[in-house]
Design a protein around this nucleic acid. Structure first.
Lengths: 333, 333
DNA sequence: ATGAAAGCGCTAACAC
DNA sequence: GTGTTAGCGCTTTCAT
């Protein structure tokens, strides 16, 4: 079998009997090459299956037509955004590169690391998913989804977390619940703060006092939420309903409840936030607040493309949230 | 506000009063630098927030500790794989880079293009999702998930498509259905072929003749499946049940049915394949055959890591499929 | 122990 | 029209 080394531009040049500069011009459609040469080179490229190395190309040209979406890890939330961004990218001539920093490293500051590693080379712009530290960088265009701080100078996409939290709380209230527990999100994220504020506001508006022993921090992840949920439900005077700040925590709460011999929704009502696909697969199917995640991903990509193109536009996009009723809540008798 | 250009190695070198060569040695933990220099350089790196450019680094060193997962686009199937691969990557010291070629381009041959663009530089190995053309490359380690051809010389991960298709068909048969339609997948994929063979075999085993007017090609995508599904259901003597080769086609079939005034499962039973999260969110929730997608992604990543490490092992992994009963099928009365 | 210099694959001036 | 040349930011001999 023939061993095929990676085909590089110099291979094409040699085979076609021209210089690499000429090949580069052909590849990039530059002006100033005779038609016959163009044809010949193109033929060789085809024949050899040449494809420019993204690494080398970007190192030199600082323009790659690749957009990056930087996440800590690929979990349900970020992959939903990815689907939306991918669909939107198909409408443009950009390709999408998603980079997961991994949770092993410093865990904090991954966004700065990833951005530093990829920007300047490799990508023309980046979408940061739930970044904690964000400094205005120069050179790279960046848009943030659900950032640490609310809409500031940096272009952002988010959804109406406050209204969504009220929706969730009011739903439980309407069902007759009064002892409502709250599993908070990542304290370093604005969304988590807003969801808690929405919860408290809705409780206050209904004249119900929040029992602080029923409030825990879940951290938005399954692993970090299960402990707090267990604690919450192990209490003597446990809640009849729990509003978890995201679906993963809500599912973890259901798991914790089950392990304590409690059945959802019979012994405990649980409502989540996000409407990631997993919420529908959970058992029972989770009642939750929907964030239009795919749409948010798509909006982020479009905003980024506009930014790069220099289009004047609103750099903050906020999308609405809505209640999705499934089977994890029931009226308090 | 201070304008911060991208910090490069030369900046660190200048600030620390050493050469870039020394900085490089420190960064890469090379031998032969005095402790005092190491300390000083590390301090400057910290201070300036230096991070090596992936592009430049990989161009030179051909070792990046980054693994690529190459897909045509980010849709439910590939993102499930991504979740599994991401979780598995967290157990290693590799980071994950997912690259979507986009469906605009040649549509065929994206795997060759992406691989050529990223390999040799940027990534140490790649996972190819549903690749059509796959030649044994040299230099880059590659594992394929659900490839064009069955397990051959190339390392592959797949699930038991044949058994799964039989499961689906037998389920419909057991429900009393006899006029069963089939919406096929992408003819260029081995999985699609096996699902059709499984279907036909199960039908034959039950002594039921396949009505060829009830067989269509759906192409695995929503957009490509809706037309064929509509055609199928518009026929005078339409089927009472449809086995769609994947969930997206199944959901498209339900949509087509609804638009023709047919209700699922009352007027038509539909079963899918894959068990992507979307199948649970569909209405009605879709009965389907589960492929352990996240597990497949994780297996692919582990196989790739083993390959790179030179571990001797089986390079073909096949995982089992199983029936997931939800609400889109009912017995024929 | 440290630095100068070559070169990874490519692009962009600038010559010819 | 086409080739020569100089880097992009980094790693790696090889001198010093």
């Amino acid at each position: 079998m023939e061993i095929r080394q990676r085909v590089k531009m110099s291979d094409v040049a040699r085979t076609a009997g021209v210089s690499v500069a000429t090949v580069s011009k052909v590849v990039n459609g530059r002006w100033g090459v005779s038609q016959s040469t163009v044809d010949r080179v193109q033929q060789v490229i085809e024949m050899l299956g040449y494809e420019a190395s993204l690494g080398a190309q970007s190192l030199r040209s600082h323009r790659t037509h690749v957009l990056g979406i930087l996440v800590a890890e690929f979990e349900p939330f970020s992959t939903e955004l990815l689907k939306g961004a991918s669909a939107a990218a198909d409408q443009t001539d950009y390709e999408l590169l998603a980079y997961a920093a991994g949770t092993r490293g410093s865990k904090v500051g991954w966004e700065r690391r990833s951005l530093a590693r990829l920007s300047g080379t490799l990508i023309d712009g980046a979408i940061l998913v739930t970044p904690t530290v964000l400094e205005a960088k120069q050179g790279v265009h960046v848009v943030a989804i659900d950032p640490h701080t609310g809409p500031s100078g940096m272009p952002t996409i988010d959804s109406d977390n406050f209204a969504g939290a009220q929706l969730a709380t009011n739903y439980l209230l309407d069902l007759g619940h009064r002892r409502i527990g709250f599993i908070g999100g990542r304290p370093d994220l604005e969304s988590a703060r807003l969801r808690e504020v929405g919860f408290r506001q809705a409780m206050a508006a209904a004249g119900v006092t929040v029992d602080e022993t029923l409030v825990r921090v879940g951290g938005y992840r399954t692993e970090t939420a299960e402990g707090p949920a267990r604690e919450l439900l192990s209490q003597a005077n446990r809640p009849t309903a729990v509003f978890a700040a995201n679906d993963l925590s809500a599912i973890a709460t259901v798991t914790a409840a089950n392990s304590l011999g409690l059945s959802v929704p019979d012994d405990l009502s649980v409502i989540g936030f996000d409407n990631v696909p997993e919420s529908a697969m959970a058992s029972p199917p989770l009642t939750t607040i929907k964030q239009p995640l795919q749409q948010m991903g798509a909006e982020a990509l479009r905003l980024l493309v506009d930014l790069i193109a220099g289009v004047e536009r609103d750099i903050h996009v906020r999308l609405p949230t809505e209640l999705v009723v499934r089977a994890s809540c029931r009226p308090l008798v």
